[in-house]
Design a protein around this nucleic acid. Structure first.
Lengths: 350, 350
DNA sequence: CTGAAAGCGCTTACAG
DNA sequence: CTGAAAGCGCTTACAG
């Protein structure tokens, strides 16, 4: 910046004003300064700006477990939304652990993030934090800022299956403590007609009871009349699907299978997997927008509260969840009334 | 910091020295300063430090496509390695596009990252960048800093399959332009004995020829004697596996199937998928260590080169690749000679 | 429309 | 062992 000022022969204040386009500089000077900046390959110093303005233009993204198969979609959407708004994204992995989650948040704060998007570990609440926080979980979680409507997604699944004539359902969950999974299954049950039957199995519970079990024992349920199996995740649907296929059960001719999340493999397997696709782009946009509004809204901060000690005020951001759409992806696995499978556009790898 | 200085009654220089533990302050003063800092909930300002030291302690991670199913493992490993070394990780998604990749790198530079880990888009080379860069690709890519030994991984797969008695192979790739995929298939072929036969199909090529094809046409190959199908990714292996199952072929009794990458679903499907697991933790550690060494090594930078115009010197970091291990995960899909499946510990979702 | 000055929070020679 | 001072690069009132 001093470089530019010298080269053009003006003050650094003028350079700053010209480059930021606040319109306090004559048009031709702006022109000249811009040109020189470009020529010099000028890159503004974030550190300088951050120190002066008190804002880093960086957001922190706290994930419960990066290795979650859904994470790529989330991270990508957040990165795009933040980037469009002029913010960078610093990631932190809480590794499924509440303590690590706290540490991860602390690390991000130390790095000076302006705000936090937190996808909490299994219904964890987060303590008070010294910057705005947008929580992404499920509508039934207190403090939730934005999320897909998992309940509604579950309802769409069972409505679809009932339309196909199914009346005897098996729901497959993994962890009974998960708000998201409970909402999904809750929605599934809520949309059931009175002429139906259903049971629910929880994989974790099964494994705790019999740690070395290798099958889900689906055949018993099928024999007892179940014709539709709806899982809370594509991962479990995949498990169900391949277990049935190995046992010689035809999907969807004998049993329909559905998943949730539209993971990368859902359209790739045979039969392709009927599932629910959440609009991550929308979720990310809403979360980021809410966060940025909060960040950029001038606040009168009581210096006594902020400075007396570290116990800062936590402001969890609220947003309008209603806009997020859940899309039922009808594919072959729920069959039979299915349009010819579109060739999967993905399946791209390295 | 001034707060602390005032409270304790010393200069801010002393506070800085005490807190950084450079040992220029008396023990009891250090003690007192530490205590007051903690009490005040002091969080050092990254911006101030960055401005003064010229280093942000943030690394940029450029990914070819965050939605790649392998990304979670990579991102997680990088985040942990960086975090252990005291660095934060800023992510950028190049969305499979070379232009976006360039923009993504530029954005990260503007945010003041000290170094970059780049996983390049399909054998893309990256232009010159004004900070150290560690490239993670495949050993045969020029400029590669660290990577798994994909060739060796491929060789392990076919050695294993030959040990099981297979002599007639089908290799399934996706994109002929991918260095990684070529290395994997190259390794598979190289380890083949002279008494074997093999063919290779490329999914993208098939789709280009027949855009609306829905099956890989595996049955023709099986009928012509293929007994082992090795894919370059678990995603394709899954496609192969389910397509065979749907056609009534027993896996592994009639045909063995193997994948690559040990994606999250590999141990979950039935039969569980034999695959190759790359040690991402090691890759990340090596990449980050190489990068940090480069960053923290004092360099005499010719100010004429750096400042004359933006054309900065690119220093691609080299590292020792030989340490990265590839682990063959023998599971049910390849074998008959397989130990009883361990119950999958994962399958955890939201 | 333009410039001189102050200051964000830190660290690092340099004196004492 | 401790302190006063300078300066990293920027922006923002405030003068002119």
């Amino acid at each position: 910046m001093t470089q530019i000022a010298k080269a053009v022969g003006v003050s650094s204040a003028t350079v700053s004003n010209a480059l930021s386009g606040k319109g306090r500089v004559s048009a031709d000077l702006v022109e000249k300064i811009r040109a020189t900046a470009a020529e010099l390959g000028y890159v503004p110093s974030n550190a300088g700006r951050a120190l002066r303005t008190g804002r880093s233009n960086v957001l922190g993204l706290v994930l419960p477990d990066i290795s979650n198969p859904l994470f790529p979609q989330i991270a990508q959407a957040m990165e795009v939304a933040a980037s469009n708004a002029g913010y960078g994204v610093l990631i932190a992995d809480s590794r499924g652990d509440v303590t690590t989650q706290t540490q991860a948040i602390a690390r991000l704060i130390e790095r000076g993030v302006d705000g936090l998007v937190v996808i909490p570990r299994r219904g964890t609440r987060i303590g008070s934090v010294s910057c705005p926080v947008a929580m992404v979980d499920t509508p039934s979680t207190p403090g939730n800022t934005v999320s897909a409507d998992h309940w509604e997604g579950g309802a769409e699944i069972t409505r679809h299956l009932q339309d196909l004539g199914h009346r005897n359902f098996l729901f497959v969950g993994h962890d009974q403590a998960s708000n998201v999974q409970n909402d999904r299954i809750g929605g599934m049950k809520a949309a059931l007609g009175s002429d139906t039957r259903h049971q629910t199995i929880w994989i974790e519970t099964l494994l705790n009871a019999q740690p070395d079990r290798t099958s889900l024992g689906l055949m018993d349920h099928v024999k007892s009349g179940v014709t539709a199996i709806a899982a809370v995740s594509d991962l479990h649907a995949l498990r169900v699907l391949t277990e049935l296929q190995t046992a010689g059960i035809k999907v969807p001719q004998q049993v329909s299978v559905t998943g949730f999340d539209d993971l990368v493999f859902a359209p790739v397997v045979t039969p392709s997997l009927t599932t629910v696709h959440m609009n991550m782009t929308q979720i990310a946009q809403i979360a980021i927008a809410a966060l940025i509004t909060e960040i950029e809204t001038p606040r009168t901060i009581d210096p006594n509260i902020e400075h007396k000690n570290g116990a800062a005020v936590s402001h969890t951001v609220k947003a309008d969840t209603s806009k997020v759409s859940m899309e039922l992806m009808v594919r072959a696995s729920s069959g039979p009334a299915v349009s010819p499978a579109t060739p999967s556009p993905n399946g791209e790898i390295l």
